[in-house]
Write a protein that binds this DNA or RNA. Structure first.
Length: 317
RNA sequence: GCGCAGGUGGUAGAGCGGCCAAUUACACGACGCUGUAAACGUCGCGCCCUUUCGGGCUACGGGGGUUCGAAUCCCUCCCUGCGCA
C-alpha cells in the first residue's frame, strides 16, 4: 500500500556474521551509503572492540555542500553514517539514534543514493523501520538513582506499585521484574504527567524496508567469534581500552563487551587470559540474544548459506 | 607405607540422618524488552508419565552395614590433594 514510501535496504544479524562486508559489497553494487545501527560504533575511539569497518578516505563525497561532510566516516569509498559521532563520555540513546538515522537516510535519498541500514542493535533498527514513537523524556539520572535506592531498600514491587498507581495500564505492559523498565516507565510518567503506556506507540512507517538477515550456523559463528576476539587482542584492544579508560573512566559507553572485561583486567581484578575468555563467552551470549531478537522481526529475508537474493538498483527506486 | 583432608548433577561448590532430585554460581537451552539495548530482565535445566495437581524410576566414587528412614552415621575397597617417610 505504501508504494510511495522511499526504499531502504536493511541488513541485520548477530555480531561477527559478516554484516559489514556484505553491506559494503551491496553499497558498491547498488550505489548506496551505509547507516550504522550499532550502539557502540557511535563512539569515537572505540574502534577495535566494536569491529568498525576499516577507515579509509579513498572515496569521493558526492555532495560537498553537506555540513556533515567533514566528519563523515568512510570505508572502502563508502560513506558510513552514525559511526564516530559521540565521545565515550557523552550519553546517547535510542530516541536520538532514531532521529539521527532518519536524518541520515533522508540525506542519502536526497543525494539519489540507496540508504543501507546495517547493524546488530535490534532496538535501533526497529525504532527506524517500525517508526517507534519513543517518549522524548531524557534520562533523569538523579531520579533513577533515587528509585534504584528505593528498590534496594524496599523492593522492586514497591516501585512497580507506584507506577501502576499512576499508570494502571502499565500493570500488564511493563515487566514488573525488570528494574530498568519499571524505573524508566515511572520516569516518563512523572516527567510528563501522562501514563507511560499511552506514550509508547508506533507511527506509520516512513520507509519501505527490504530486510536481509544473516543467520550463520551457531557452531561456525562461535568459532568465528573466538577467532575475532583473538584478532582484536593482537590488534591492540588492550591498549585501546587502556587509553579510553584513562581518559574517560568508567563511562557507560565502556560497558560494552570487550572493554568491560579488559577494564577488570586493567584494574587487576582478573588475568588477561580470564578477560579474553570472558570476552569470547559474552560475545557469544550477545550473538545469541541478537538472533533471538531478529528471529521475531517481521519480513526478514533470511540469507541461507550465503545465497543472496538478486538485488538490482531498480528495485529500490 | 603412615597421617590428615577430600571424592555430590556439564563445571565449581553447598548440604552433613527425614523438609534433598539436592542451596548457589557458571555453562547450556528457551524467551522478553519503546530514551542505559554490546544494556536490562524472565523461565527451564537427571530420566519417564501427566493438560494441571501430581506420580514413578535412577542418583551424591564402588561394595556392604546401622536405621522406620542415609548424600548425610559405621566398615571396607578404589581414587585425588597435602604432610611425614
Amino acid at each position: 500500500m505504501n508504494k510511495s514510501l522511499p526504499k531502504v535496504l536493511v541488513i541485520v544479524g548477530p555480531t561477527a556474521s559478516g554484516k559489514t562486508a556484505l553491506s559494503i559489497r551491496l553499497a558498491k553494487k547498488l550505489k548506496g551509503e551505509i547507516v550504522s545501527a550499532d550502539s557502540r560504533q557511535i563512539y569515537i575511539g572505540m574502534d577495535i572492540g566494536t569491529a568498525k569497518p576499516l577507515q579509509g578516505f579513498r572515496g569521493k563525497i558526492q555532495n560537498p555542500n553537506a555540513k556533515s561532510q567533514k566528519n563523515l566516516y568512510i570505508s572502502e569509498g563508502i560513506p558510513h553514517h552514525l559511526i564516530d559521532i559521540k565521545n565515550p563520555n557523552e550519553d546517547y540513546a535510542v530516541a536520538e539514534y532514531k532521529r539521527d538515522a532518519i536524518k541520515a537516510i533522508r540525506g542519502i535519498l536526497k543525494r539519489g543514493k540507496l540508504p543501507i541500514l546495517v547493524g546488530g542493535t535490534g532496538l535501533y533498527v526497529r525504532a527506524v523501520v517500525e517508526n517507534l514513537d519513543i517518549p522524548k523524556v531524557v534520562a533523569d539520572e538523579k531520579l533513577r538513582r533515587k528509585l534504584e535506592k528505593e528498590v534496594e531498600k524496599k523492593d522492586l514491587e514497591h516501585v512497580f506499585k507506584k507506577l501502576v498507581a499512576l499508570d494502571p495500564e502499565a500493570a500488564y505492559i511493563v515487566d514488573p521484574k525488570n528494574p530498568r523498565r519499571v524505573i524508566r516507565a515511572l520516569e516518563v510518567t512523572l516527567a510528563t504527567g501522562k501514563p507511560f503506556t499511552a506514550q509508547r506507540k508506533k507511527q506509520s512507517p516512513l520507509f519501505e524496508a527490504k530486510i536481509l538477515g544473516l543467520t550463520p550456523a551457531p557452531a561456525a559463528l562461535r568459532k568465528r567469534i573466538e577467532k575475532r576476539v583473538d584478532q582484536m587482542i593482537s590488534d591492540g584492544l588492550v591498549e585501546e581500552t587502556e587509553e579510553l579508560y584513562e581518559q574517560y573512566g568508567k563511562v557507560k559507553a565502556l560497558d560494552a563487551i570487550g572493554y568491560r572485561e579488559l577494564v577488570d583486567y586493567l584494574d587487576g581484578k582478573i588475568s588477561l587470559q580470564e578477560a579474553i575468555r570472558q570476552i569470547k563467552l559474552n560475545t557469544w551470549h550477545y550473538a545469541r540474544r541478537q538472533m533471538t531478537w531478529f528471529r521475531k522481526t517481521p519480513n526478514v529475508h533470511w540469507i541461507k548459506k550465503g545465497k543472496l537474493p538478486t538485488l538490482t538498483r531498480r528495485q529500490f527506486s
